[in-house]
């Protein structure tokens, strides 16, 4: 047995999440490689790159992936379902069709066999989390290198000194 696979095996025994079925994508906590690929395209369509990076470069999927093991734990099944549905929907068109499909979802007009409510619910969920991952603090896994703050012209750390006056007695 090669050392690498042996280690991977022990890691799988150690961590429950690693052992079950298809494991998380490398560098991610819960979402699989396929799921990350779909989510990445989804987020990127919501905040696309132009001359400045978009949601994908900013690692918005990593923000979502991390929060799915923390505050958004209870949303994991909904995410898995939504990503699986999107993956099936995209099978024919590929990720190029993403933006047009998201427009349909926003209006609740996605195929009912994929999204019971026409996609509205999943659309709103991913949009809210994408904005958070893109504009929120990098400490939570997204907004890599403060990319959105630089885009908006906000210094990541403001320069602020303090008055040297004595504040006197308490």
């Amino acid at each position: 047995m090669k050392r690498r696979s042996f280690i991977a095996g022990t890691a799988a025994v150690g961590g429950a999440g690693c052992g079950r079925g298809e494991g998380p994508a490398p560098g991610y906590r819960v979402l699989t490689e396929n799921e990350i690929r779909t989510l990445d395209a989804w987020c990127e369509a919501l905040i696309p790159a132009d001359d400045a990076p978009g949601a994908s470069w900013a690692k918005v999927p990593r923000y979502i992936d991390i929060q799915l093991t923390r505050k958004f734990r209870r949303l994991l099944p909904r995410y898995r379902e939504a990503l699986a549905a999107m993956e099936r929907w995209l099978a024919a068109a590929g990720v190029e069709g993403m933006a047009a499909r998201l427009e349909l979802m926003e209006q609740g007009k996605a195929p009912r066999e994929l999204f019971a409510d026409g996609g509205k619910d999943a659309f709103e969920m991913v949009l809210a989390h994408t904005l958070q991952g893109f504009y929120g603090s990098p400490r939570h896994g997204g907004n890599r290198d403060y990319v959105s703050w630089v885009l908006l012209g906000v210094a990541p750390v403001p320069v602020r000194g303090r008055e040297q006056a004595e504040t006197g007695k308490n």
Binding site: A45, I47, P48, A99, T130, L152
Partner: peptide, 13 residues
């Protein structure tokens, strides 16, 4: 969302 959102926000924040 999309390019429209990004353009608006970076100009107007």
């Amino acid at each position: 969302w999309g390019k429209g959102h990004k353009d608006y926000f970076r100009t107007n924040y």
